[in-house]
Design a protein around this nucleic acid. Structure first.
Lengths: 416, 416
DNA sequence: GCTATTTGTTCAGTGGTTGAATTAAATGAC
DNA sequence: GTCATTTAATTCAACCACTGAACAAATAGC
């Protein structure tokens, strides 16, 4: 049976620091440096970088190599005198992560290895709104099985999986509300229980983690792009969600429901929203709102085609579309200004359907930021498109699995 | 010379984990448990709590006692069989923190000991707007000297100081902008350089840290009140600031300028604000705005008297005041709804001048939250007044010094 | 007074890091 | 071609801090 869990506890580093913890912490430290380095570092470089002794680094690396997390690069053609360094890099054939995504009109599965390479990627397009949750998850399990077979064929060991859904997920992996999918209180763990298990738990984390797709997309951007330690990632899908990355970690909020940016009030006295509020951002910059303002309301485009169509029309300078995007950008800008005033972030990433529209959305967003952010003069804010494609959540989900192994290699190594 | 620093680097735990780090981490772990415990725990209880061995706990506690951070409580009159436990508590005569505050119409200094007790507190009232920064800091230095003498007399060792100012502080301790004080680019470190030094650095942190008053007030609330790990603290002074505490730590933002909640747009098309934006929160819930709406605009009250007067009038059910507070509460509620949608916080603390007005502000704030927060149904938000008084920033500043020693006792112990 | 019970300390043992010495492997000068 | 130089990586005794178990201390109950 699959075991599931939505939000892993923050896991404060303040547990008991036992004797073995020392090695565990240094494993994580060295592995992290190897992962973040631009080119394969030598043991000596790692020692100088971390402050550890060369002897300790050697011992730690030996463990990592034995655990198939790190491999030595080819004999390096380095210049200068002295014994040539043997570069260390993340292993391409060790553990890998399985990323899954359910969205309004597609299912996706992908496999990402330790080095962050996407080794498998499948997208299955179909409108899932009329499909029951159980059937939808059944189809997803088929994609997962195919991905797993492909991973096995490539000598990869799946170490866990993460599933992104466009809605609110509680601590037990249950989907409390996914408005655009029409789901409410769907027990994803139970529904997946009948399908074969993915793998055993690693380091106490269950094999499948369910999370909000905006969170996972932000995580994907964190370690795919050259994103800094703190940024806001806005996913413009049918709804609008956001993932908040602070100091290199996703901030999930008290109950895991952070980032509901779509229902931040832009005009408190504006038209009513189905959420019960008034003048929410989604009413001005959601997909329906933009299509409607552009005069494309009845076109009945699939959700993922809508942004493509808008991009084409905007590139052709379609007046109504340009106007609609300017309006949407202004609304996004007002919201982003609030966020930047509150959190002092220096980077905003436009993802999902917004990514390809960045050229038209950025000017009004920046204009609102400059007008409304007190510190804008000293602290310029960068607005840029997401580097991952449409299925960023799936890639981010898979990445979150391998990222956890890199951050806590102890669990994976103990499994051997 | 005083050395200053505005924002301490996040200090990611991911440094080199050397051999001695182990002891350092366990010192912090044990000391933290002693600080958080309701009643003085025994060594055995600490061992059971932390997972360390009794032997290790004994050794760690020996270091802490030798460093005057912990003392043994009186022979405990405990019930039940067995050797009676010797309770451990934070030392009252060890290191202490000096907290300073400059605000629009007062200066404050206080001394807080390890246990969080306020051992000295002085407030000097006078309008500082017409006073030059150099003179203001000179007066503050006098207060600090008096506080220091009092600390010496009580056998306390000042281990550092923090200064709260109502404005933006950069990484070097310079005040970039304090609009309500009329300061701009004031080099606080240089201006204090002529005054005698406070004490030597502890653990690499300079003896004086300059920070935003809203940040320090939030920190004070964090370890004074029964506040949970994550909350938003709103300081209603002449301006409106906020401190954001996430998972038990203050979140400062990329450049240390988080929490500028006063200029979050409430009505994007509203009246112009002097910040350059339109419809900022301060225009609806700032002190001037409330007084003006209440018909008290010309009363020319000192800033700290204004909230007292408003509270009296509200208690007397003065119609215009009640209306003004309802309007302000609604504006605050709209803003808080944005914050909760974004960060999923479950607690909002009303501080500064808002604290005594909580009774009238809370209903409209809660109403807006319930209307506009998507997850409000499953995730109730608590709105409560701050427990610290008007000079919360000074107390919070002093508390931040001792709190750092508790979190990182290694530096203090190494100093001996 | 004796036993049960819980607290706190002592001490040999061990895991993991340290620092210096040693070996390994390549460059470059003569 | 040989050898000094240089940098990389390993080996090894020493050491630091935690572990686990045995032991001493202090009290309640019988």
């Amino acid at each position: 049976m699959w075991q599931c869990q939505g939000v892993k506890p923050p896991a404060a580093p303040a547990g008991a620091v036992r004797q073995g913890s020392l090695r565990e912490l240094n494993l994580a430290l060295v592995l992290g440096r190897i992962a973040d380095a631009r080119r394969p570092p030598s043991r000596a470089a790692l020692a100088a970088d971390t402050g550890l002794t060369r002897a300790t680094v050697s011992a730690v690396v030996e463990d990592l190599v034995a655990g198939r997390l790190v491999t030595e690069a080819d004999p390096t053609p380095r210049a200068g005198a002295g014994r040539p360094a043997r570069g260390l890099m993340l292993a391409g054939n060790g553990p890998a992560g399985l990323g899954l995504e359910i969205n309004v009109d597609y299912l996706a599965a992908c496999v990402v290895d330790l080095a962050g390479q996407v080794r498998h990627h499948t997208v299955h397009r179909s409108d899932l709104r009329p499909v029951s949750p159980a059937d939808a998850l059944g189809r997803l399990a088929e994609l997962a099985a195919r991905a797993r077979a492909d991973a096995d064929a490539q000598d990869l060991t799946l170490a866990g999986a993460a599933l992104g859904v466009p809605g609110l997920v509680d601590g037990s992996g249950q989907v409390r509300l996914a408005p655009n999918l029409g789901w409410r209180d769907v027990p994803v763990p139970d529904l997946l229980a009948q399908h074969p298990p993915l793998t055993e738990t690693v380091d106490g984390v269950p094999p499948l983690v369910v999370d909000n797709e905006a969170n996972l997309a932000a995580l994907g951007e964190l370690h795919a792009g050259a994103a800094p330690g703190s940024f806001l990632h806005i996913s413009g899908e049918v709804g609008i969600g956001a993932g908040i990355v602070l100091n290199g970690a996703l901030f999930r909020g008290t109950r895991g429901w952070s980032g509901e940016i779509g229902h931040i009030p832009v005009r408190p006295d504006g038209p009513p929203c189905r959420c019960g509020g008034r003048g929410c951002l989604e009413l001005y910059a959601g997909q329906e709102a933009i299509l409607s303002a552009a005069g494309l309301a009845g076109a009945d485009l699939p959700a993922d085609r809508a942004s493509t169509r808008l991009t084409q029309l905007a590139a052709a300078e379609h007046p109504a579309v340009l106007h609609a995007l300017a309006e949407a950008g202004t609304a996004i800008g007002v919201t982003v200004a609030s966020v930047v005033n509150l959190l002092d972030l220096d980077t905003v990433v436009l993802g999902g359907g917004y990514a390809s529209l960045t050229g038209w959305l950025r000017p009004p967003v920046l204009a609102e930021i400059e007008r409304r952010v007190l510190t804008a003069a000293w602290s310029p804010v960068t607005v840029r498109p997401a580097t991952l494609g449409a299925t960023a959540a799936a890639v981010g989900a898979a990445g979150s699995v391998v990222r956890r192994i890199i951050a806590q290699p102890g669990g994976w190594l103990a499994r051997l």
